[in-house]
Design a protein around this nucleic acid. Structure first.
Length: 166
DNA sequence: CCTGTGATTGTTCAA
DNA sequence: TTGAACAATCACAGG
């Protein structure tokens, strides 16, 4: 609703102006959020009661996969820290510290996650047609490509650590 | 009561 | 191709 950033008093943190912002494209993506809600119609609102029951949530990127694990570790070392942003910053900093080889396992995980996402994507894509045209969904009768179960379960074998670092 | 926001980066979609 | 936005998390505050 309100995009007023000056809401939470916990903003005691100093503005990270000193650190290299690197031209943060989004600079507070929240600003852009209200700028154009083209996708907003498919966002949180969807879960509330929109016609979007199966909105495929994007697979977590390698960073997020790493973050999930990092969060646990961080909380153990900083159990008092309840700021999600704290973990985000620390995680982001640590993430950049990792090398490709270290990120490899995370990327691999994310990559596989993407594969699964592709399947959901197809289903969602189909739905998109319905949204555009409700009556057009009937066209799949002559084209049964929806149920394309090639390999739904591929055994989950991702132990491939044959990485040669530079 | 419930939802938004805050911070990170990556990934994905849509125009 | 580019841009915009969302993916988790957790606690709190506001409507």
């Amino acid at each position: 609703m309100k995009i007023t950033k000056s809401k939470v008093s916990t903003r005691k943190d100093k503005k990270e102006v000193s650190l290299p912002v690197e031209e943060r494209k989004v600079g507070k993506r929240k600003a852009a959020l209200k700028a154009d809600k083209s996708r907003l119609k498919w966002t949180k609102k969807a879960k509330l009661g929109k016609k979007d029951p199966d909105k495929p949530k994007r697979p977590p990127s390698a960073f997020f996969v790493f973050l999930e694990e990092f969060r646990k570790t961080y909380k153990e070392e900083h159990p008092n820290v309840k700021a999600v942003s704290a973990v985000g910053k620390a995680g982001g900093e640590k993430w950049k510290s990792l090398t490709n080889a270290e990120k490899a396992p995370y990327e691999a995980k994310a990559a596989q996650r993407k594969l699964d996402y592709e399947k959901v994507m197809k289903a969602y894509n189909k739905k998109q047609e319905s949204v555009v045209d409700d009556e057009d969904e009937e066209s799949d009768k002559s084209n049964s490509v929806v149920n394309d179960e090639d390999d739904e379960e591929t055994g989950e074998g991702e132990e491939d650590d044959d990485e040669d670092d530079d």
